[in-house]
Design a binder for these strands. Structure first.
Lengths: 340, 340
DNA sequence: ACTGGCACTCACATGGGACGAGTGCCAGGA
DNA sequence: TCCTGGCACTCGTCCCATGTGAGTGCCAGT
């Protein structure tokens, strides 16, 4: 049975009220605060219908209603009207990200910004290595038998690996290595590089072969096959703001947030930079996060996302504002990284 | 008036009991759990004396006593006997730090390890730039007019800065730069480098001068005069473990912990790697941390610390174990960084 | 100097009662 | 057919009185 107009209006009103008050909302209060043009009794009937349809529940008999996951989902998908970004917010975004000096700095500022705009916990993933292209590969001779491989990607990410060599390596060899590696790998996407990299030892002069084999081994193993994905977390203090929402649940949430794996999975399924993804309450994969909602999006220029970012908060978060903020920040970060 | 032997014994017993139970301890319970050889009444007299002397307070008339800051201080300074590290802990430290691949990894593991060993919030500072020596300086030509300066320190810290040049720079110039910078700066401590660096432009061939001036400017400004100190934070979930200790106080503590500045100041006063520093309750500088204790120490090889690390927890933490764990981890990290 | 005894204090748990927000249902009216 | 006012009912929450017990301070006695 389709829900007619007014019922939807009632649902929206309930969700909005509940989000701002965090208390079960009753028919009388609803009739007073929103001019729906009908009496509380009528609203009660609608509420009963909405409850039957699974959009609302009553915590206990003599209380008002609160939205269910299904209710929030419907709200987000069909009822919520995106709130445009205020001028102040726009300015805040610019001001915050303006002065960043390097990638680390950009991401640290981003996470802070997100936390501040949304009053939630914020998560930002480093630009994924595998989806980046090689900008430069540097070979540094720390000592005669110890080389450092420095990989710089187009997104500004810098990874280094120390490689202990069995024999000493001369400075000439290092220069040659540097040249060879760069010619072959520059502008290649790392995801497509494994073939090129594993062929490398066979295509270089024999005297370079042992060294190249070592280096490509490290390259393949730690940067291509098992690239280290990283995330930045911030605004955990905001969890306590909603302490009332998950009384004894802060603990597991904080614990989950300390697990890189969890955070990565949270953002890892994000692919398109164009569409915000909202996972509400028990739609989340992780047990500990069943009492929270996650709003995430990819960032990056073009079609494929370099990484994901998002926020996590109580299911009763202000979805319209949050969605607006998250996507605005993602867009801006995308531009920033493309431009630098 | 000096406190005689038994009173001290009573104080120690009270603190130990309170630490493990988090409840005001009374004379009867104390007499039962510790075989002090005297009756509750006697203990009551001692407790009254200890209260007069400022080591204990009564939360309310009909409750037991709890230690004051002064009480904890006395306990830490005079009564606590350091608990030796258990075999399991020793193994845990080794196992945890064994597989680290780079500095980031070492520090991330360290913070996790500390949090796990002590059940507190852990903080680890990156090896201070100014106290490190230069291991290598790399100049990378990202595009003809954009160079990247990569600084590698002996502690394994790698910092990069992108420098936009007004004119194009040839690959030859870059090689020359690299050689010059390394000859002059390798094995110099950054703290002592400002003179060398600022003199550099005058000591190179004129054609290099503009480029060198740009680079040394960046070097001086962002790496020597205002080096970016960094910290890693972990185990914040442990704050909730002691939720009972600071009921409404988690919020400000979490907020304080999100401030890099606060964390740095927390560890910044640490200089010697040999001596653990304990700041109890209101001995802390920061308002928000008045309800917590901080146990910190420097790490690094030799006399001067490369950085600090420590944990933060409720004032009623288990000081002996915590102190042992913190100093053991610091020692091990120091070795690890020196050896690599 | 220590001990047992005793009166006293006071936080906290328990239970009953009043209160009120909110509901479902029903009969009457547009 | 849909909406409305009225009404009885439910049930969580607040408030208060009371009882209980842990803990204390003091004192007289050994």
């Amino acid at each position: 049975m389709p829900l007619e107009e007014r019922k939807l209006e009632v649902l929206r009103a309930i969700i909005e009220d509940f989000i701002s008050s965090n208390e079960p909302v009753g028919s009388k209060a609803l009739a007073e605060r929103h001019h729906l043009g009908v009496s509380p009794a009528t609203i009660r009937n609608d509420m009963a219908a909405l409850e039957d349809a699974g959009y609302l529940i009553q915590p206990h008999t003599s209380a008002g209603r609160i939205p269910t996951t299904k209710g929030y989902r419907f709200f987000v998908d069909r009822l919520a009207q995106l709130r445009p970004l205020s001028g102040a917010e726009r300015r805040a975004i610019h001001a915050f990200l303006e002065g960043a000096v390097d990638l680390d700095d950009v991401l640290r500022r981003t996470v802070r910004l997100l936390a501040q705009l949304t009053h939630q916990v914020a998560v930002v993933q480093y630009p994924s290595l595998s989806r980046s292209t090689v900008c430069h590969l540097e070979v540094v001779r720390l000592t005669p038998a110890r080389l450092m491989l420095v990989l710089i990607t187009d997104a500004g990410r810098v990874e280094q690996r120390v490689v202990e060599m069995p024999d000493e390596v001369s400075e000439d060899v290092v220069s040659e290595l540097r040249a060879t590696l760069n010619t072959r790998l520059r502008d290649q996407r790392l995801a497509e590089a494994p073939d090129i990299v594993s062929d490398l030892p066979d295509t270089v002069p024999p005297r370079l072969r042992p060294v190249v084999t070592m280096l490509t081994g490290i390259l393949l193993e730690t940067l291509i096959e098992h690239p280290e994905e990283r995330v930045v977390l911030g605004g955990t203090a905001n969890l306590t703001r909603s302490a009332l929402d998950f009384p004894n649940t802060i603990r597991p949430v904080l614990e989950a947030l300390e697990e890189q794996v969890v955070l990565l999975r949270l953002l890892g399924e994000v692919h398109s930079p164009s569409k915000v993804q909202v996972r509400i309450g028990d739609e989340n994969t992780f047990e500990a996060l069943r009492s929270t909602s996650v709003v995430s999006i990819g960032y990056g220029s073009g079609e494929t996302a370099l990484g994901g970012l998002g926020v996590l908060g109580p299911t009763r978060m202000d979805y319209p504002s949050t969605i607006t903020a998250v996507s605005a920040v993602a867009r801006y970060v995308g531009q920033l990284l493309a431009g630098s």
